[in-house]
Design a protein around this nucleic acid. Structure first.
Lengths: 143, 143
DNA sequence: ACTGCAATTGAGACTAAATATCAATTAAAC
DNA sequence: GTTTAATTGATATTTAGTCTCAATTGCAGT
Protein backbone atom coordinates (compact mmCIF):
# COMPACT_ATOMS: atom_id res chain seq x y z
CA UNK A 1 0.00 0.00 0.00
CA UNK A 2 2.66 2.53 1.00
CA UNK A 3 4.52 1.07 -1.92
CA UNK A 4 1.78 2.13 -4.31
CA UNK A 5 1.57 5.60 -2.83
CA UNK A 6 5.29 6.03 -3.19
CA UNK A 7 5.27 4.85 -6.81
CA UNK A 8 2.55 7.36 -7.51
CA UNK A 9 4.42 10.17 -5.81
CA UNK A 10 7.64 9.37 -7.66
CA UNK A 11 5.94 9.15 -11.00
CA UNK A 12 3.97 12.35 -10.48
CA UNK A 13 7.19 14.21 -9.84
CA UNK A 14 8.86 12.73 -12.91
CA UNK A 15 11.45 10.93 -10.79
CA UNK A 16 12.81 7.43 -11.10
CA UNK A 17 11.87 4.41 -9.04
CA UNK A 18 15.29 3.06 -8.08
CA UNK A 19 16.09 0.00 -6.05
CA UNK A 20 17.83 2.17 -3.49
CA UNK A 21 14.69 4.22 -2.90
CA UNK A 22 12.62 1.09 -2.56
CA UNK A 23 15.17 -0.35 -0.15
CA UNK A 24 14.76 2.68 2.11
CA UNK A 25 10.98 2.58 1.88
CA UNK A 26 10.84 -1.13 2.65
CA UNK A 27 13.26 -0.88 5.53
CA UNK A 28 11.22 1.88 7.15
CA UNK A 29 7.94 0.03 6.74
CA UNK A 30 9.38 -3.24 7.99
CA UNK A 31 9.05 -2.08 11.57
CA UNK A 32 7.08 0.33 13.70
CA UNK A 33 8.34 3.14 15.80
CA UNK A 34 10.74 6.04 15.72
CA UNK A 35 14.08 6.00 14.00
CA UNK A 36 17.08 8.16 13.24
CA UNK A 37 18.69 8.41 9.80
CA UNK A 38 21.99 6.92 10.91
CA UNK A 39 20.32 3.87 12.46
CA UNK A 40 18.28 3.43 9.34
CA UNK A 41 21.40 3.59 7.20
CA UNK A 42 23.14 0.96 9.31
CA UNK A 43 20.17 -1.39 8.91
CA UNK A 44 20.09 -0.86 5.17
CA UNK A 45 23.84 -1.29 4.86
CA UNK A 46 23.44 -4.83 6.16
CA UNK A 47 20.31 -5.68 4.21
CA UNK A 48 19.97 -7.37 0.87
CA UNK A 49 19.53 -4.30 -1.28
CA UNK A 50 21.84 -1.63 0.02
CA UNK A 51 21.87 2.13 -0.27
CA UNK A 52 24.50 4.68 0.62
CA UNK A 53 24.19 7.15 3.46
CA UNK A 54 23.61 9.95 0.95
CA UNK A 55 20.78 8.04 -0.70
CA UNK A 56 19.18 7.27 2.64
CA UNK A 57 19.09 10.95 3.51
CA UNK A 58 17.85 11.91 0.06
CA UNK A 59 15.09 9.31 0.09
CA UNK A 60 14.08 10.27 3.59
CA UNK A 61 13.39 13.80 2.40
CA UNK A 62 11.28 12.46 -0.46
CA UNK A 63 9.29 10.28 1.90
CA UNK A 64 8.56 13.23 4.15
CA UNK A 65 7.46 15.23 1.13
CA UNK A 66 5.16 12.40 0.09
CA UNK A 67 3.56 12.27 3.51
CA UNK A 68 4.48 8.64 4.14
CA UNK A 69 7.03 9.58 6.77
CA UNK A 70 6.93 12.37 9.30
CA UNK A 71 9.58 14.27 11.16
CA UNK A 72 8.81 13.77 14.83
CA UNK A 73 11.33 16.18 16.24
CA UNK A 74 14.76 17.63 15.95
CA UNK A 75 16.81 16.61 18.96
CA UNK A 76 20.31 17.59 20.06
CA UNK A 77 21.57 14.66 18.06
CA UNK A 78 19.55 15.13 14.91
CA UNK A 79 16.20 14.39 13.38
CA UNK A 80 13.83 11.68 14.55
CA UNK A 81 11.35 10.24 12.06
CA UNK A 82 8.43 7.83 12.05
CA UNK A 83 6.14 6.31 9.46
CA UNK A 84 2.89 8.23 9.33
CA UNK A 85 0.92 6.23 6.82
CA UNK A 86 -1.67 4.02 8.49
CA UNK A 87 -0.82 5.40 11.89
CA UNK A 88 -3.13 7.21 14.21
CA UNK A 89 -2.17 10.74 14.95
CA UNK A 90 -0.34 11.26 18.22
CA UNK A 91 1.98 13.70 19.93
CA UNK A 92 5.20 13.18 21.82
CA UNK A 93 6.98 13.70 25.09
CA UNK A 94 10.75 13.58 24.82
CA UNK A 95 13.08 13.08 27.75
CA UNK A 96 15.90 15.61 27.70
CA UNK A 97 18.26 13.28 29.50
CA UNK A 98 17.83 9.82 28.00
CA UNK A 99 15.94 10.67 24.81
CA UNK A 100 13.02 8.37 25.60
CA UNK A 101 9.95 9.14 23.52
CA UNK A 102 6.45 8.75 24.94
CA UNK A 103 3.46 8.90 22.62
CA UNK A 104 0.15 10.30 23.68
CA UNK A 105 -3.04 11.55 22.11
CA UNK A 106 -5.71 13.86 23.39
CA UNK A 107 -8.88 14.53 21.49
CA UNK A 108 -9.50 17.47 23.79
CA UNK A 109 -6.30 19.17 22.70
CA UNK A 110 -7.13 18.45 19.05
CA UNK A 111 -10.51 20.05 19.51
CA UNK A 112 -9.05 23.11 21.20
CA UNK A 113 -6.64 23.50 18.32
CA UNK A 114 -9.47 23.40 15.80
CA UNK A 115 -11.26 26.02 17.85
CA UNK A 116 -8.19 28.24 17.90
CA UNK A 117 -7.75 27.88 14.16
CA UNK A 118 -11.31 29.01 13.58
CA UNK A 119 -10.87 31.94 15.91
CA UNK A 120 -7.75 33.02 14.00
CA UNK A 121 -9.20 32.31 10.59
CA UNK A 122 -6.41 29.84 10.02
CA UNK A 123 -6.81 26.76 7.84
CA UNK A 124 -4.78 24.26 9.86
CA UNK A 125 -3.61 21.12 8.08
CA UNK A 126 -1.15 19.63 10.56
CA UNK A 127 0.36 20.26 13.91
CA UNK A 128 3.30 19.21 15.98
CA UNK A 129 3.26 19.16 19.75
CA UNK A 130 6.34 18.15 21.69
CA UNK A 131 6.59 18.27 25.46
CA UNK A 132 10.11 18.15 26.85
CA UNK A 133 11.32 17.31 30.29
CA UNK A 134 12.35 14.28 32.31
CA UNK A 135 10.81 10.84 31.99
CA UNK A 136 9.72 8.63 34.86
CA UNK A 137 13.11 6.95 35.21
CA UNK A 138 15.27 10.04 34.85
CA UNK A 139 13.33 12.20 37.25
CA UNK A 140 14.01 9.56 39.91
CA UNK A 141 17.77 9.73 39.36
CA UNK A 142 17.98 13.51 39.39
CA UNK A 143 21.37 14.76 38.22
CA UNK B 1 15.89 42.08 37.98
CA UNK B 2 17.09 39.30 35.68
CA UNK B 3 20.52 40.38 36.87
CA UNK B 4 19.64 39.57 40.44
CA UNK B 5 18.14 36.22 39.52
CA UNK B 6 21.26 35.31 37.62
CA UNK B 7 23.56 36.33 40.50
CA UNK B 8 21.50 34.15 42.77
CA UNK B 9 21.61 31.21 40.41
CA UNK B 10 25.36 31.51 39.95
CA UNK B 11 26.03 31.80 43.65
CA UNK B 12 23.75 28.90 44.52
CA UNK B 13 25.67 26.68 42.16
CA UNK B 14 29.02 27.80 43.57
CA UNK B 15 30.05 29.34 40.27
CA UNK B 16 31.77 32.61 39.56
CA UNK B 17 30.19 35.80 38.34
CA UNK B 18 32.48 36.75 35.48
CA UNK B 19 32.31 39.81 33.24
CA UNK B 20 31.88 37.52 30.25
CA UNK B 21 28.77 35.92 31.74
CA UNK B 22 27.34 39.31 32.56
CA UNK B 23 28.10 40.50 29.05
CA UNK B 24 26.01 37.67 27.60
CA UNK B 25 23.18 38.23 30.05
CA UNK B 26 23.08 41.95 29.35
CA UNK B 27 23.25 41.53 25.62
CA UNK B 28 20.29 39.12 25.65
CA UNK B 29 18.17 41.35 27.84
CA UNK B 30 18.96 44.47 25.85
CA UNK B 31 16.37 43.49 23.23
CA UNK B 32 13.24 41.43 22.79
CA UNK B 33 12.58 38.56 20.46
CA UNK B 34 14.16 35.40 19.20
CA UNK B 35 17.88 34.98 18.61
CA UNK B 36 20.46 32.46 17.55
CA UNK B 37 23.76 31.83 19.36
CA UNK B 38 25.91 32.95 16.45
CA UNK B 39 24.06 36.25 16.07
CA UNK B 40 24.38 36.80 19.77
CA UNK B 41 28.11 36.13 19.61
CA UNK B 42 28.56 38.61 16.78
CA UNK B 43 26.77 41.30 18.77
CA UNK B 44 28.88 40.63 21.84
CA UNK B 45 32.08 40.56 19.83
CA UNK B 46 31.44 44.17 18.88
CA UNK B 47 30.24 45.33 22.28
CA UNK B 48 32.21 46.91 25.07
CA UNK B 49 32.73 43.82 27.19
CA UNK B 50 33.44 40.92 24.88
CA UNK B 51 33.15 37.18 25.26
CA UNK B 52 34.38 34.34 23.10
CA UNK B 53 32.10 32.08 21.12
CA UNK B 54 32.76 29.27 23.58
CA UNK B 55 31.76 31.44 26.52
CA UNK B 56 28.61 32.57 24.76
CA UNK B 57 27.52 28.96 24.27
CA UNK B 58 28.48 28.02 27.81
CA UNK B 59 26.64 30.96 29.33
CA UNK B 60 23.60 30.31 27.17
CA UNK B 61 23.32 26.84 28.67
CA UNK B 62 23.54 28.30 32.15
CA UNK B 63 20.84 30.82 31.35
CA UNK B 64 18.53 28.10 30.10
CA UNK B 65 19.22 26.11 33.24
CA UNK B 66 18.38 29.15 35.34
CA UNK B 67 15.09 29.64 33.54
CA UNK B 68 15.89 33.15 32.36
CA UNK B 69 16.22 32.01 28.77
CA UNK B 70 14.26 29.38 26.90
CA UNK B 71 14.99 27.26 23.90
CA UNK B 72 12.25 28.08 21.43
CA UNK B 73 13.07 25.44 18.86
CA UNK B 74 15.77 23.50 17.19
CA UNK B 75 15.72 24.36 13.50
CA UNK B 76 17.68 22.96 10.60
CA UNK B 77 20.28 25.60 11.31
CA UNK B 78 20.54 25.29 15.05
CA UNK B 79 18.90 26.40 18.23
CA UNK B 80 16.68 29.43 18.58
CA UNK B 81 16.38 31.06 21.98
CA UNK B 82 14.35 33.78 23.61
CA UNK B 83 14.28 35.47 26.99
CA UNK B 84 11.58 33.91 29.07
CA UNK B 85 11.74 36.04 32.17
CA UNK B 86 8.84 38.48 32.19
CA UNK B 87 7.42 37.06 28.98
CA UNK B 88 4.09 35.38 28.53
CA UNK B 89 4.16 31.91 27.08
CA UNK B 90 2.74 31.48 23.60
CA UNK B 91 2.52 29.01 20.73
CA UNK B 92 2.65 29.48 16.98
CA UNK B 93 0.70 28.96 13.80
CA UNK B 94 2.87 29.06 10.70
CA UNK B 95 1.51 29.60 7.20
CA UNK B 96 2.96 27.08 4.78
CA UNK B 97 2.60 29.44 1.84
CA UNK B 98 3.70 32.88 3.02
CA UNK B 99 5.50 31.97 6.24
CA UNK B 100 3.38 34.26 8.39
CA UNK B 101 3.63 33.51 12.10
CA UNK B 102 0.60 33.91 14.32
CA UNK B 103 1.12 33.77 18.07
CA UNK B 104 -1.57 32.42 20.33
CA UNK B 105 -1.97 31.15 23.84
CA UNK B 106 -4.51 28.85 25.41
CA UNK B 107 -4.60 28.18 29.10
CA UNK B 108 -6.89 25.24 28.43
CA UNK B 109 -4.28 23.52 26.30
CA UNK B 110 -1.62 24.25 28.91
CA UNK B 111 -3.76 22.65 31.57
CA UNK B 112 -4.44 19.58 29.44
CA UNK B 113 -0.72 19.19 28.89
CA UNK B 114 -0.02 19.32 32.60
CA UNK B 115 -2.69 16.70 33.10
CA UNK B 116 -1.15 14.46 30.46
CA UNK B 117 2.29 14.82 32.03
CA UNK B 118 0.96 13.74 35.38
CA UNK B 119 -0.80 10.78 33.80
CA UNK B 120 2.45 9.69 32.15
CA UNK B 121 4.64 10.38 35.14
CA UNK B 122 6.57 12.86 33.04
CA UNK B 123 8.25 15.92 34.51
CA UNK B 124 7.52 18.40 31.74
CA UNK B 125 9.62 21.55 31.67
CA UNK B 126 8.72 23.02 28.31
CA UNK B 127 6.63 22.39 25.27
CA UNK B 128 6.44 23.42 21.69
CA UNK B 129 3.23 23.49 19.70
CA UNK B 130 3.23 24.50 16.06
CA UNK B 131 0.15 24.40 13.87
CA UNK B 132 0.78 24.51 10.14
CA UNK B 133 -1.60 25.38 7.35
CA UNK B 134 -2.82 28.42 5.47
CA UNK B 135 -3.34 31.84 6.97
CA UNK B 136 -6.36 34.08 6.45
CA UNK B 137 -4.94 35.75 3.36
CA UNK B 138 -3.54 32.67 1.68
CA UNK B 139 -6.60 30.51 2.11
CA UNK B 140 -8.56 33.14 0.21
CA UNK B 141 -6.20 32.94 -2.77
CA UNK B 142 -6.18 29.15 -2.92
CA UNK B 143 -3.49 27.99 -5.31
C1' DA C 1 15.02 -4.96 -27.28
C1' DC C 2 18.01 -1.00 -28.34
C1' DT C 3 19.25 3.79 -27.78
C1' DG C 4 19.79 8.26 -25.71
C1' DC C 5 19.77 10.95 -21.93
C1' DA C 6 18.48 13.01 -17.80
C1' DA C 7 18.05 11.38 -13.15
C1' DT C 8 20.47 8.89 -9.64
C1' DT C 9 24.06 6.81 -7.10
C1' DG C 10 28.10 6.50 -3.95
C1' DA C 11 32.56 7.74 -2.03
C1' DG C 12 34.40 11.15 -0.05
C1' DA C 13 34.92 16.22 0.45
C1' DC C 14 32.72 19.77 2.70
C1' DT C 15 29.85 22.74 5.98
C1' DA C 16 28.33 24.43 10.15
C1' DA C 17 26.70 24.09 14.95
C1' DA C 18 28.22 22.94 19.10
C1' DT C 19 31.46 20.78 22.39
C1' DA C 20 36.11 19.48 24.20
C1' DT C 21 40.98 20.57 25.27
C1' DC C 22 44.20 22.85 28.07
C1' DA C 23 47.49 26.43 29.35
C1' DA C 24 46.86 31.00 31.07
C1' DT C 25 43.90 33.89 33.74
C1' DT C 26 40.77 35.41 37.34
C1' DA C 27 36.95 35.58 40.97
C1' DA C 28 36.39 35.07 45.53
C1' DA C 29 37.08 32.75 50.13
C1' DC C 30 40.43 32.96 53.67
C1' DG D 1 47.61 39.48 49.66
C1' DT D 2 47.61 34.48 49.00
C1' DT D 3 45.54 30.44 47.51
C1' DT D 4 42.85 27.68 44.68
C1' DA D 5 39.44 26.04 41.90
C1' DA D 6 36.58 27.91 38.28
C1' DT D 7 36.76 30.20 33.89
C1' DT D 8 38.37 31.88 29.62
C1' DG D 9 39.66 31.72 24.73
C1' DA D 10 42.10 29.95 20.72
C1' DT D 11 41.84 26.12 18.44
C1' DA D 12 40.90 21.21 17.58
C1' DT D 13 37.32 18.00 17.34
C1' DT D 14 32.86 16.01 16.63
C1' DT D 15 28.90 15.03 14.13
C1' DA D 16 24.59 15.51 11.30
C1' DG D 17 23.67 16.47 7.00
C1' DT D 18 24.64 18.32 2.27
C1' DC D 19 27.39 18.78 -1.92
C1' DT D 20 30.36 17.19 -5.82
C1' DC D 21 30.99 14.72 -9.82
C1' DA D 22 32.25 10.73 -12.53
C1' DA D 23 30.04 6.44 -13.31
C1' DT D 24 25.69 4.18 -13.54
C1' DT D 25 20.86 3.30 -14.42
C1' DG D 26 15.76 3.82 -15.07
C1' DC D 27 12.79 4.75 -18.59
C1' DA D 28 10.61 7.06 -22.79
C1' DG D 29 10.73 6.78 -27.61
C1' DT D 30 11.61 4.11 -31.45
Amino acid sequence: MENKIFRNFISNKGLKLTKERLAVLNEIFSFRGHFEPEQLYLRIKDSEIKASRASVYRTLNLLVESGLVGKVARTEKGNVYEQTFGQEHHDHMICDRCGAIIEFCSQKIENLQDELCKKNNFDGTSHNLVIRGLCKKCKRTKR
